[in-house]
Design a protein around this nucleic acid. Sequence first.
DNA 1: ACCAGTACATAGCAACACCGAATACCGATG
DNA 2: CATCGGTATTCGGTGTTGCTATGTACTGGT
Lengths: 109, 109
Amino acid sequence: MGKQATEMLKGILEGIVLAILSGRPAYGYEITAWLRDQGFSDIAEGTVYALLVRVERRGLVDVEKVPSEKGPPRKVYSLNSQGRAYLEEFWRTWSFLTERLEQLREGGE
Amino acid sequence: MGKQATEMLKGILEGIVLAILSGRPAYGYEITAWLRDQGFSDIAEGTVYALLVRVERRGLVDVEKVPSEKGPPRKVYSLNSQGRAYLEEFWRTWSFLTERLEQLREGGE
DNA sequence: ACCAGTACATAGCAACACCGAATACCGATG
DNA sequence: CATCGGTATTCGGTGTTGCTATGTACTGGT
């Protein structure tokens, strides 16, 4: 992805991670790997962890520490009801943006 | 729009403004008014001006000072070739994001 | 003993949108 | 003529975010 992506990801990456968690609980390392797999090639490791700390502090997710056979214990995050409400709000804003941009793209060129 | 919008706009607002300028030259006050009209209700006045200064400094736009009958002179911005290339890159990143998020939205709920 | 893979944390940095205030120019109203 | 509202731009300070770089810790294989 281009260099612009860094700024464009702000706020959106959070929505992406919450959307992932809305499907199933997951832990940081797993999420990072999934993102890279989906083409978010240069998402930094630390970025996801910092994001998870933030959403936890805001009470959008519940956390459970689960031992792993292959390394240190995992912190498994799951979306709670407050997080679900927040995610819906995210989708509303996202829809608004896609509509405006779609219009601009059609009219623009 | 919700409070999340502030963060989600980062990087995207720039694309929006450049997309506007790709259609026709415009000046700050005009762009701000247009944005409010389109539902970006709480875009701060200063935000657009600061953005325009940035894109000018990066050489994405050309500027012309035009006298106004109703106030101080306007700074009319128009997208140059470098800005056009940058805008295309923006659309590519945007497309990538919309695809990923569309998938997530379908799968998620 | 060493190294790679798994898993998490964090301090410092740059960029961006927001807030608030200031400046400047004009026409109309009192 | 003084003032107010609409037009138009600028700027310093703030908070949030993602990136970089580094450090820690646990496991299994060589």
